[in-house]
Design a protein around this nucleic acid. Structure first.
Lengths: 195, 195
DNA sequence: GGAGTTGCCTAATTGCATTAGGTTCCTTAG
DNA sequence: CTAAGGAACCTAATGCAATTAGGCAACTCC
């Protein structure tokens, strides 16, 4: 019997494809094995089980995002950087919905690789902020604001909440970025009104 | 054998409790039956299966949210209305994480009850907007902005992303609301910078 | 107090996850 | 060149969740 040439990356890649095509919940060990032309238990040589598959998927996706984020930020600053970085996330979510969902799953055990990728993304959001007059002490708040708006929009859009009637989500996205840009630009004022 | 007195609401309530305590994924038919002291197939007289259980949970949660939203908006307008309404969602998510997650699950079949509850929540966000000078044509964008920020923040907070180091998520929440309030107040300007 | 409906049950099937324990193929040291 | 060892994949078997089919008992209502 010829071997299938399984490797951990190959298994994770197939899981990622399945997650993108049929949803994260469809990326099961059974489905991956079936798709690879292999029996389910054979996968256990490469992943430790379902949890590990999920964790590996999260790592894969978050690392992808971090890589794209770095490329997007290269040579940009201010609102250009903000838009490019935010678009990386939105585009990734549309291109690879399953992987994006896996990256957003916060209930996987934090592996070193995962932590590192998360740290890279965090560093990127701080880098974006460097283009705005947000005082040191407020940076965390601004990062959380950016992350919240970004994640919320992308998830709602992916879930179809902005489909159908009304203006395109494209326009809303442009507006949201404009609002975010202005809020960050005028941050000192925002801080005043927080009292 | 004495009967357990099952009803659809009782089944859904138990599912909701389980979802809140052990996570949405733990709210399975098996677990609900076990907790109710009943065999799994007995539930099929009250719910059609797993999908229906999920849908019922989503209805329950979204209706709860709509009810609370109505109460929060009564007699309030402007930033008071915004804060009260946004807090309803955040508080609900913290009080009933499983139910909130069920409400946010956008992959359940849309039942009439679910549609109605969703429409009520949508109406509430439009009501909040009435306290701000957002032109008619831009209301949808503003609604999407509010919804995105709200959902993103609440989910990230629930996932523990704002825990640990740094300032409290409480502060960040106050800041986010302040920024949102100001952005809506200054909306005409935001519209200009969108170009 | 009997007929029918309803509520809950047992039995049985299917599918995914997981563990245990082979067997075959490939590499590499002697 | 060959035999040892490990890696890759397999079959067998178990457990749990979901689902369907069909049965009996307990309420209801005339």
């Amino acid at each position: 019997m010829t071997r299938a040439g399984l490797t951990r990356p190959a298994v994770l890649e197939m899981a990622a494809v399945l997650a993108d095509e049929r949803g994260l919940r469809a990326a099961t060990l059974s489905a991956v094995a079936r798709e690879l032309g292999v029996r389910t238990p054979s996968l256990y040589s490469h992943v430790r089980g379902t949890d590990d598959l999920r964790a590996g998927l999260a790592e894969l996706a978050l690392t992808d995002l971090a890589d794209r984020g770095d490329r997007a930020l290269a040579g940009r600053s201010g609102r250009r950087a903000l838009a490019a970085w935010a678009n990386v996330h939105r585009d990734y979510a549309r291109e690879h919905p399953g992987r994006f969902a896996a990256a957003g799953t916060l209930d996987v055990a934090p592996t070193p690789t995962l932590e590192e990728a998360a740290a890279r993304v965090a560093a990127q959001s701080l880098a974006v902020l460097r283009g705005y007059p947000v005082p040191e002490a407020d940076r965390v708040h601004a990062v959380r604001l950016m992350a919240s708006l970004l994640r919320g929009f992308v998830e709602l859009e992916a879930g179809g909440a902005f489909g159908g009637r009304g203006p395109t989500s494209e326009e809303s996205w442009a507006r949201a970025l404009a609002v975010l840009d202005e809020s960050l630009t005028r941050w000192p004022h925002a801080a005043l009104t927080a009292s």
